Computed example of a mutant assay.
Amino acid sequence: MNLNATLLGQAISFVIFVWLCMKYVWPPLLALLDERRDEIAKSLSLSVNAEKELQIAKANGQQLIDEAKQNASQLVEQGNQRKAQIIAEAQAVAGQEKERIVAQGLGDIEMERSRMKNELKEEMASLVIECAQKLIDKNLDTSTNREFVDKLIREI
């Protein structure tokens, strides 16, 4: 066997093998690579879009959080104002009730004072009559004594 014939046979086999690979193997591989490249490019663009949307969502989320905080602080402030208003109303009602109770107490005291004054006058009249009877040692009728004592009390 000749080295040149073997080499020539191997070269022809290699060329046929390369031609077959280029005709049947290489195009599907290139198609797969192109498809994969397109898929990667598409994924990259989607990830960029997703990142932009994430940034927008973060900004919107922060804005919503800020608005919620502001609303919460407004509600707390309104609650504090309402609390102060209720306390003021309760103090006003309590003040009015206090004045009413004091006025009623003063009225009761005045009535009791008048009643006691009248009782004292009557008791004093009885005591004066008894004293007068003992001093005079004369038996005057009770109506005359009563008129006399009433006159004295009025003068006092």
Rank of each mutant, 00 (worst) to 15 (best):
C21V: 15
M22N: 14
K23W: 12
K23C: 05
Y24E: 05
Y24N: 09
Y24T: 06
W26I: 15
P27V: 01
P28D: 00
L29A: 09
L29Q: 13
L30N: 11
A31H: 10
A31F: 11
A31W: 10
A31E: 15
L32A: 13
L32T: 06
L32Q: 14
L32C: 09
L32V: 09
L33W: 12
L33Q: 11
D34Q: 14
D34L: 14
E35F: 13
E35Y: 11
R36G: 06
R36C: 06
R37K: 13
I40R: 04
I40H: 03
I40W: 02
A41N: 11
A41M: 10
K42E: 08
K42N: 11
S45T: 15
S45E: 13
L46D: 08
S47M: 11
S47L: 12
N49F: 10
N49P: 01
N49Q: 12
A50C: 05
A50F: 05
K52C: 00
E53N: 06
Q55K: 10
A57I: 04
A57M: 09
A57V: 04
K58S: 02
K58F: 01
A59L: 09
A59R: 09
N60L: 14
N60V: 13
N60E: 15
G61R: 05
G61P: 00
Q62L: 11
Q62C: 03
Q63L: 14
E67L: 09
E67D: 10
A68L: 13
Q70F: 10
N71I: 08
S73A: 13
S73Y: 12
S73G: 02
Q74V: 11
Q74P: 01
Q74M: 11
L75M: 10
L75K: 10
V76N: 04
V76K: 07
V76S: 05
E77W: 04
Q78W: 07
G79C: 00
G79N: 01
G79I: 01
N80T: 12
R82F: 02
R82V: 11
K83Q: 05
K83R: 08
A84N: 05
A84H: 06
Q85Y: 04
Q85P: 00
I86C: 00
I87R: 04
A88C: 02
A88Y: 02
A88W: 02
A90M: 04
Q91E: 12
Q91N: 07
V93E: 09
A94L: 06
